[in-house]
Design a protein around this nucleic acid. Structure first.
Lengths: 365, 365
DNA sequence: GAACGGAATCGAATCGATTCGATACCTCGA
DNA sequence: TCGAGGTATCGAATCGATTCGATTCCGTTC
């Protein structure tokens, strides 16, 4: 099953030369103390920087301790520290899907903010968020896209009562011993439609399969509502659905844009689908935004890394501010009781709908 | 900075109704034992399934313990368990870049394999891999793309001597108390060039900036070598460089393909750049592979999610097999001494170079 | 009825750190 | 010379689990 050939090049042996076979066990603080001829307390003070009553460890003693630690190759055991102090200096992110651009953006932002405060970010990707919480000790846990079921509510509250600090992202849950971050997309979707309606009447829709089946509170509704309000015809063939793969969105967009009566603008319910639509348009020889305008939803970082840049809607400065909330809760510096944090959405203009921009901004090298 | 308005809807108060303010501290095994009227040993046996000498905990006792635990909302403290048993049931992945398709594919595969064995996967994304290793206790740590510097070698060996089990992905390091996974891209790059040379002579190159500056052992070399071997002219303008953003690769590809004397095939040094090239071709109205063929390098999952599918080179079944090695090491079931695990590369045919395929396979809905 | 054997449970040591109160040491002033 | 006061260090309890050897409580057997 696995091919081992440790003698890759030359005749260098497999075993490390200097170290005997005895060096198997991990060195402990006590060993360091013995080697340095001090108590365990002193070693601990040297490593933690703190000190019980006095103003610190004397210089020569500290030097001796550090040398002993170096010689033994000592590093503190995190689990032992955690059990004693009750802190793990760790932020846990439980993400439902690893490759989702939203999740990645959150992870990157939290990681940066956590590092700034000396914390470590742990990412757990698992189908079962709640199980994940019982698998690692962490100062605070962030749950991605928590649903509002009664079971979820119960489990979250149980965790909170046990003292686990929690931040959940949810459009339906209410705070209940834990923080809730909410960023309702629907008002933003109306902004997106309004933007397109300034210049277009033949608008197509690129929407996730599930949203068409159950349109209530989905991103499909704003499309239907606005079209109806303006008295515009809702052409069934102008709605194309996609699953959650890039290829699926691309295929759907091609089908939509290769019609005789193709729309002059596309309302895509995710940035990711909007980007697929731009690629599809280019493949079909259509210019964006002149032949077809495209708007996305979500304001993910990807929106900036395509030519032309994507017009989208989303919360502003969302990732950074969300990261601040999470880390503040880990440090227990959050403002008192957990509560609701709302992030309103707004329009983020880009080249994919801006007719006044030069046709192909990406061409310059 | 943060807007709290916990009274979101209706008049529901902020505080949870049932629980008093006393329920602040996390319940311990001892509390469960007292409530159930048994010793801590018994509670531990109930939760771990194991038992000291006897054949198990009696049914009525176990029931009493579980009820007490349920009532107190008890969950074992992982840090305490880790310190006592020396195992954390945890696999740690230290990735240098979170959004890299390779890293994500590794993470997904390891996560699946780890779950299958009751382990939890922790992902650390950090600039400093070695520092990350001192921040969490884990049964095994995987290091992404370790460089072969002397400092890296020293640090890795120090970790290994301390008993930390390690699996590193590296093209230059040799095993030294830790496993090395190697998957040399260069032979694969030659395969890619050979594939293009079967039908093309005017071949362009899309290469990372760094590789052009220091071509030794880079993916640029196989391009130069093969072109020279065949006596084909190496047109300087047929080499375009990109940084590590999608937009950058896209721009480079557009520049390359909008030339009068554009090449009929593109050798891209990553799948990611190859995909950008396909998109660029489509935008310029060029058909892939008829007007321009494209080959990528790496065999990432993304290669399958574009139309036409990408021809690429890479190791086969790499992610799953790599995951097996890592998890086996965590469970200490790996075959004895750590060693070298090599994954050879081969050609993965796709539509982006296959002239016999229908022109636009994505068109069907 | 006493000795025996096995199952169920218990008590206490232990893992590797932190931290509080106590102690040893030193200097300085009267 | 003695005591006060401050500093550096130490000893031991502790965090929450696991686990080994010991103990109790049965029902059997002779």
């Amino acid at each position: 099953m696995v091919q081992d050939n440790a003698s890759g090049q030359g005749g260098t042996g497999t075993f490390r030369p200097g170290s005997g076979t005895a060096a198997r066990r991990r060195p402990t603080l006590r060993m360091v103390a013995e080697l340095a001829g001090v108590s365990t307390a002193t070693v601990s003070y040297v490593f933690s920087g703190r000190n019980g009553g006095g103003s610190g460890v004397a210089e020569p003693t500290a030097k001796r301790v550090l040398e002993a630690a170096e010689q033994l190759n000592y590093r503190p055991n995190r689990a032992a520290r955690t059990i004693r102090t009750g802190r793990s200096d760790t932020v846990q992110l439980s993400l439902h899907m690893l490759s989702d651009p939203w999740s990645l953006a959150v992870a990157a932002a939290v990681n940066e903010e956590a590092n700034r405060h000396g914390l470590t970010t742990l990412i757990l990707a698992d189908g079962d968020w709640y199980a994940a919480l019982d698998r690692v000790e962490s100062d605070v846990a962030y749950l991605d896209a928590a649903v509002g079921s009664d079971e979820a509510r119960r489990k979250l509250q149980a965790l909170a009562e046990r003292g686990q600090r929690l931040v959940v992202f949810s459009e339906t849950l209410e705070p209940d011993g834990y923080d809730v971050i909410r960023s309702d997309a629907i008002p933003g979707c109306y902004l997106a439609m309004d933007h397109l309606l300034e210049r277009h009447t033949a608008i197509g829709c690129l929407v996730a399969e599930g949203a068409v089946r159950t349109p209530e509170h989905s991103r499909y509704t704003p499309y239907l509502v606005r079209m109806r309000e303006r008295g515009l015809p809702i052409v069934p063939e102008h709605t194309a659905t996609y699953a959650d793969t890039q290829a699926s969105a691309f295929t759907a967009a091609v089908a939509l844009l290769s019609r005789e009566d193709r729309p002059t603008a596309i309302y895509a319910t995710t940035d990711f689908a909007a980007i697929a639509a731009i690629n599809a348009a280019h493949m079909l020889g259509l210019r964006v935004p002149h032949d077809v305008a495209v708007i996305g939803i979500g304001n993910t970082p990807d929106a900036q890394s395509i030519a032309p840049t994507l017009t989208t809607v989303g919360p502003t400065d969302f990732y950074r501010r969300q990261a601040e909330i999470i880390v503040a809760r880990a440090l227990d510096s959050g403002d008192g009781e957990p509560g609701l944090h709302e992030f309103p959405w707004s329009l983020v203009p880009g080249g994919s709908t801006d007719l006044d921009a030069p046709p192909r901004p990406a061409r310059t090298n």
